[in-house]
């Protein structure tokens, strides 16, 4: 069964775009229907995308919709993969969690919440995962600075040294 045709037949307008690049199919899905689409992909005979490889966030700044969440599905029965993508607005991005369909998504979604600030509604445990709980901001957003510190060389040693914190006993 061709996954794109099957999805288009089943979901119609909710399939917003289909792209193919070097044999990888990307299907952009309406955020409101992502759980249904995942459920369909997993349970339909002929598709059987039973393995969720990866979920990742993308920041498309300055485009709008700004955020993307990409789901990489893989079917062990058919030996092929599919990328589903959801586009989300720049302020208060939120999408429903797919942990109900793929339990593996749990930590990936927490990671995206932590690093991009995309909220997953109905997620069982929406806390920060990588950064400390009291961290400000979401580091992987494009407008978040890298946090670069000036490197201390011999020519600017004293200059930088003034600002460098040192621990004392």
């Amino acid at each position: 069964m061709n996954p794109v045709e099957a999805l288009q037949a089943e979901f119609g307008d909710a399939i917003q775009a289909v792209e193919e690049f070097r044999g990888e199919i990307t299907v952009t899905v309406d955020g409101a229907r992502i759980v249904d689409v995942c459920q369909y992909c997993r349970d339909t005979e002929g598709l059987q995308y039973n393995f969720l490889s990866d979920v990742t966030g993308i920041d498309y700044l300055p485009q709008e919709p700004r955020f993307g969440v990409a789901y990489h599905l893989y079917s062990m029965y058919q030996n092929r993969s599919l990328r589903l993508k959801v586009l989300l607005p720049g302020d208060e991005p939120a999408v429903s969690t797919v942990t109900g369909v793929y339990p593996a998504a749990n930590w990936f979604e927490r990671e995206i919440f932590d690093l991009f600030g995309v909220t997953f509604t109905n997620h069982p445990d929406m806390r920060r995962i990588l950064m400390p709980a009291d961290w400000d901001g979401h580091p992987l957003r494009k407008d978040y600075p890298l946090g670069y510190e000036t490197v201390q060389f011999s020519f600017n040693f004293d200059e930088v040294d003034k600002f460098k914190p040192y621990a004392k006993e």
Binding site: L146, G147, Y148, P165, A167
Partner: peptide, 11 residues
């Protein structure tokens, strides 16, 4: 040299 790493443990 980024946000996550302490730039030298002597801090």
């Amino acid at each position: 040299n980024n946000y996550a790493i302490v730039q030298g443990v002597d801090e």
